[in-house]
Design a protein around this nucleic acid. Structure first.
Length: 527
RNA sequence: GCGGGAGUAACUCAGUUGGUAGAGUGUCAGCUUCCCAAGCUGAAUGUCGCGGGUUCGAGUCCCGUCUCCCGCUCCA
């Protein structure tokens, strides 16, 4: 990150705190790593953003319905989805081919015995050889796509993919937050189980396994994504509303991951908020709908005000695609530190429903009486739907919106008129209109309060504000992104007009006070 | 996880060799003020990130720890 962009990021973080958007969690106790609280402005902004998503994805569509599922789910959900295995096993990375594998499932080999590494092709073998010399390992010979001259390390296993003994250390990833359902603390059960096992002479890894089993008995997990709830509720939702494919199930809410690294303010945190939708389609139509949702989702990010030049797609390469997926695009935003993911739009085939069908024994399929079964050629087709998933980060969406909206104007040559302004889309703005008496006398406050009340009654998020000079109040509203200000002045008392001031260009127009509500609601509608 | 930098008022920061914690901005009150952070007068606000140590005395020196930022690593 360049200094200039790092400084810009600092300023955004600083403004977020100063104006009540985002505070660090538990700040008076020194702060909690990677946890943030949304203040009065931030809570409104996040809520507005998520409401916009819900409106676009659920309310404005015939084919998508919403759910709000529990954060705690049956542990078997995570077993079936693969999260449990991938999130909590001892994992090792191969330093030659990049494969990550479970240490306990790797091919065993006698420590010290010769190891032959076989890469996919000559080019990869050359690259691996370079990596070896980089690691300071010499005396390795290349024969075509194989490397000879390495020896098995003391761990006694090699990479299942290429046979390499050059491996990272075993790391126990437990990326899911484990907790316990039920009032009995599991520590007692663990102590008892371990004590019994120790008396039986068990040691080391065996004791660990005993402890692990004792914990597992009562373990549940905070969801690491909201998506699985849509899959396990597929039959419930489809049946309850008699939905016809294609249709989607949407959900917004919190998810939790013990990230290895947290970074960039609220961008990557262990507790975060997602906006996900699973769209169920007939087999074979995944790629078509992937294309459709890709465009829809990009259009949505544009519609809430993010600038086109700061948005792009990034296609996942074959190497980073999950084995079951047949296509995935990220919507990326140009954050101050560079391009980074806002949303992933993935074609997931029938992997999820099949996995849950196999694990639960329930038939997670759909019957289309109108369609022709390609296998039999007869009318009536029962199939496991394929899924296209647009999965967006709400928390990082808030950050993208703040970054995109943040602007500084230098003012004139003496710096007069300089200001910081958040050019938030009016629908996202925490406060829609500030209602200000020009000065605190001559009955102006009373008139202004009356206008504010009218705005409240019309459902417009208004704020009456009489502190400080008019210039400071405008500046403060610019900093929190308030798109409009209505000001009551001397002329109001004579002819019943007020000024309507626009945030982006500070332009003012004179309108009738009794038409203020209408003017503001019209402007918000047009925005 | 590794390496580097930082933490003093709400914000930005100063704080000398270890000797009574400061400035600007902001905030609050009053006066003034008819349009873009105006002025005058006054006021409040500090676990100096936290804990320990050395010392007669620690914001300053030492140890530990937490948090943030940057770069690597990682991101099923």
């Amino acid at each position: 990150m360049t200094d200039e962009r790092a400084e810009r990021m600092q300023k955004i973080v600083s403004l977020a705190k100063r104006r009540g958007f985002v505070f660090q969690s538990s700040e008076i106790y020194g702060g909690l790593r990677s946890a943030y609280d949304y203040g009065p402005m931030g809570a409104e902004l996040k809520r507005n953003l998520m409401n916009e998503w819900w409106r676009a994805m659920v309310h404005c569509r015939e084919d998508v319905v919403g759910i709000d599922a529990s954060i705690l789910m049956h542990p078997k959900v995570w077993e079936a989805s693969g999260h449990l295995a991938n999130f909590s096993d001892p994992l090792v990375d191969c330093k030659l081919c990049g494969e990550r594998f479970r240490a306990d499932k790797a091919p065993r080999a006698e420590p010290g015995s010769p190891a032959t590494v076989t890469l996919g092709d000559k080019g990869r073998a050359k690259a691996a050889l370079e990596r070896l010399s980089h690691l300071g390992i010499e005396g390795v010979r290349r024969e075509g796509k194989t490397l000879v001259g390495l020896a098995v390390g003391p761990v006694g296993y090699v990479c299942p993919n290429c046979g390499s003994p050059i491996l990272s250390e075993e790391r126990r990833f437990n990326l899911m937050f484990r907790t316990h359902l039920g009032p009995v603390d599991p520590v007692g059960a663990v102590v008892e189980a371990v004590a019994t096992a120790a008396r039986e002479g068990k040691t080391g890894a065996e004791l660990r396994a005993v402890a692990e089993a004792a914990i597992e008995a009562s373990s549940v997990y905070l969801r690491p994504e909201t998506a699985q709830a849509m899959f396990v509720n597929f039959l419930n939702v489809q049946g309850a509303l008699s939905l016809k494919i294609p249709f989607g199930i949407a959900q917004m809410g919190k998810s939790f991951r013990n990230e290895v690294t947290v970074e960039h303010f609220i961008f990557r945190s262990c507790e975060f908020e997602q906006m996900e939708m699973e769209y169920f389609v007939p087999p074979g139509e995944g790629p078509k709908y992937l294309e459709y949702w890709k465009e829809q989702r990009m259009a949505w990010w544009r519609s809430i005000g993010l600038r086109a030049e700061n948005l792009r797609f990034r296609a996942h390469g074959p190497d980073e695609l999950a084995h079951y997926s047949d296509g995935c695009f990220d919507v990326e935003y140009r954050f101050p530190w560079g391009w980074d993911e806002l949303e992933g739009i993935a074609s997931r085939t029938d992997y999820d429903l099949r996995a849950h069908a196999a694990a639960s024994g329930k038939k997670l399929s759909y019957f289309d009486p109108e369609a022709t079964d390609p296998a039999t050629g007869k009318k009536g087709w029962r199939y496991v739907p394929h899924v296209v998933e647009p999965a967006a980060g709400a928390t990082r969406g808030v950050l993208a919106v703040l970054c995109d909206a943040y602007d500084e104007e230098p003012g004139d040559e003496r710096g007069k008129g300089a200001r910081t302004v958040l050019r938030l889309h009016p629908r996202l703005a925490p406060i829609k209109v500030g209602v200000l008496p020009l000065v605190k006398k001559d009955g102006m406050p009373e008139v202004a309060r009356g206008i504010a009340r009218d705005l409240f009654a019309a459902g417009v998020g208004a704020k009456y504000d009489e502190q400080h000079s008019i210039g400071r109040r405008y500046a403060r509203h610019d900093e929190i992104g308030t798109p409009y200000c209505i000001t009551v002045d001397g002329q109001t008392l004579e002819d019943g007009t007020v000024t309507l001031r626009h945030r982006d260009d500070r332009r003012q127009e004179r309108i009738a006070a009794d038409r203020a509500v209408e003017a503001v609601t019209d402007a918000l509608k047009r925005a």
